[in-house]
Design a protein around this nucleic acid. Structure first.
Lengths: 124, 124, 124, 124
DNA sequence: GTGGTCTAGACCACC
DNA sequence: GTGGTCTAGACCACA
């Protein structure tokens, strides 16, 4: 799950992963996130790396810290993450995709084919 | 045009830029690309940086080298670039987009709206 | 061991040397290779030179990189090296030898004499 | 015939080629070698490059210069070239090949197969 | 501590 | 003039 040779930092990949789980509901508001040591052991990573991940998530008010007990998913976490990501999506990701499709003369059908899968999801 | 504080390295941005120019036809197959030191002076960067750019472009068979003369746009450069970028698109960009659309519950209409512009391009 | 006036670049000789050590087993799969700067200090060369060596070895999938930790001998390294060198042998070295033997009218016996030593190896 | 991206200099490749032709008899002792300008035009190379080739061949007493007339294959050229190349062959090329065959565990049959072609040549 | 990038400047071989 | 390699030293991000 962790790509050691990715362009993003490992601490960031882990943070993204936690955000993903919060969005998908696999980590609900108020849930305790794995402890630093536990998380480090699970992922086979230095605990300093996890510390940085949690520190930044806390700074972004996505998790909160109760001293001596652990970190917990903040009340507003899902909406904050969704807000932030939507902004990134519409301002960065999507325009880039559009540009690529035009420049590379990619067939619309190749893209819509994959989008149709999403239609099914919306009907769920 | 070159962003010095981008996440991508300068040498890579310069390479991307050259690829763009090849795709757009501003640099045609067989054309001589600016000499290493000339390019360095033009862009205000070190010649080693350009060397790295050119070396990687040569490795990807986008430019070729004639000893003592310079670098030239390779015969298969446009197709190589297109192929490389398409691979990146379908393997990296698009899956990421799909994932985001699902996770953020973005409306299909918001995406298709932008795709419709591409229909126009196909009719050209 | 490193020849500074050789036709091959220093960075390449160092790479060849590492490959030799992998083939001979002195560097085993999964082993950490010396850190860039440590290696540089050991060999008395610049760290950029080692960076180039390691980058190319990584590109050839002979070593892999774990961010912030170091470089490690890749799983498929020995077979990759053997494959690469065999290709070089049959495509470059051997044809050159054949050409010389023909052109110089060298006696077959002079060559087979040395090849017979190899018979012994095969019987091992 | 000329590889622009070879490790050997172009001037050297051209010289090697001329030596090859002298060995094979395609250029006989006393023959006039192509003029600098003619050779340059034929190979699509700068005439300075040819000048360097001829200068070095002259220095090695493989060709001689008659001012205003041209360059000619020297009397002792074939034997000199053969001598030089044989030395290189037995001291450099062959030992390297032997080393490779052992290290890469290349089958003897793969090598002898190609050597057998030489037997046929010897019978000519 | 690790790698990664860039600069500045030097030196070389080749065309 | 061209590319190519190496050094020395700096700065940064990441673990």
């Amino acid at each position: 799950m962790i790509e050691f040779k990715n362009s993003k930092g490992i601490f960031q990949q882990i943070g993204d992963n936690i955000c993903d789980r919060i969005l998908s509901g696999s980590l609900a508001v108020g849930d305790k996130v794995p402890s630093v040591r536990e998380q480090a052991a699970t992922l086979g990573v230095n605990h300093n790396t996890i510390m940085r991940t949690y520190s930044e998530l806390q700074r972004d008010e996505i998790i909160t810290n109760k001293r001596g007990i652990g970190y917990f998913v903040a009340k507003e976490a899902p909406s904050m993450i969704r807000e932030k990501r939507r902004a990134e999506f519409f301002e960065l990701s999507l325009p880039e995709i559009i540009k690529q499709v035009e420049l590379l003369e990619i067939k619309k059908s190749d893209v819509t084919e994959l989008l149709n899968k999403l239609n099914d999801n919306e009907n769920k």
